[in-house]
Simulated assay, not measured.
Amino acid sequence: MTEYVIQPAEQASVAVAGSSARFPIRRVFCVGRNYAAHAREMGNDPDREPPFFFTKPADAVVAAEGTVPYPPLTENLHHEIELVVAIGKGGANIQPEQALDLVWGYAVGVDLTRRDLQDTAKKMSRPWDWSKGFDASGPCGPLHPVASIGHPGAGHVWLKVNGETRQEGDLDELIWPVADVIAHVSQSVTLAPGDLIFTGTPAGVGALQPGDEVTAGVAGVGEIAFRVGKREDVLN
């Protein structure tokens, strides 16, 4: 048994629908600008170019329920609804035709973004880490096994704030569908069981305020609901 000089952190994990067992999270990859309309609203060309990725810490993923804290250091916290893919089998240099064989299941998630910090980072040609990888920046609903729901290739993607629709799209609008995304990730790193992939967000991203009620869903996968917590100047 390995001896550690400090107590190891608890294993990050996400709930599994209909089960008391949980899915352990190893790494979290996120795809940027994977819907053409969102790419345009962010001032970018949506032509099909190789996808780009950023990451979040595994423990940034939290349950998309109850209260999700409003983070420090921002005045412009944005919501980005996404289909989340859970990897159950590993591999490198996977071909798109075999990529879906690696998928264990799917969930509904939100990529929370400190947009003001991201905009500053872009202007200064600095990494996005502080804008994307903060605590509780990846609210995620329960995972649904492929054995239960199959592979959703199309389906309504939506997010509402206080009952008002903010984001709408369809999975068939993904510039790079799930199989292609998995293939591209596997060319850069060896995928392993426990990896999560946030696949991109449709147009309509916008700011959240403390007290906002967020509901969101992906047809054929599920729905989530959470409240944005109070603004905190420092973390407790």
Score class of each variant (00 low, 15 high):
T2N: 15
E3I: 15
I6Y: 11
Q7A: 15
Q11T: 11
A12W: 00
G18H: 03
S20E: 15
F29G: 01
C30E: 03
V31F: 06
R33T: 11
A36G: 09
A36T: 05
A37K: 10
H38W: 02
R40G: 08
M42W: 10
M42T: 13
N44R: 13
D45Y: 08
D47C: 11
A58G: 07
A60D: 07
V62R: 10
A63E: 13
A63C: 08
A64G: 02
A64T: 03
G66A: 09
G66N: 08
P69A: 09
P72D: 10
L73H: 15
N76V: 05
L77C: 04
H79V: 02
E80N: 02
L83P: 08
V85L: 07
Q95G: 13
Q95T: 13
P96D: 08
E97N: 06
L100W: 03
D101V: 00
D111E: 12
D111S: 06
Q118M: 11
T120A: 15
T120N: 12
S125I: 14
K132I: 08
G133T: 09
S137M: 05
P139A: 05
P139L: 01
G141Q: 03
L143H: 01
H144E: 15
H144K: 12
V146F: 00
G150W: 01
G150N: 04
P152N: 06
G153T: 12
V157Q: 08
K160D: 14
G163Y: 10
T165Y: 06
R166H: 09
R166Q: 13
E168D: 11
E168Q: 14
D172R: 14
I175V: 13
I175Y: 00
V178N: 03
A179T: 06
D180Y: 05
H184R: 15
Q187S: 12
T190P: 05
A192P: 05
T199Q: 01
G200S: 10
A203P: 08
Q209T: 14
Q209D: 14
P210N: 05
D212I: 07
V214T: 03
A216R: 00
F226S: 04
K230G: 11
R231P: 08
R231Q: 15
R231S: 14
R231V: 12
D233I: 11
D233C: 09
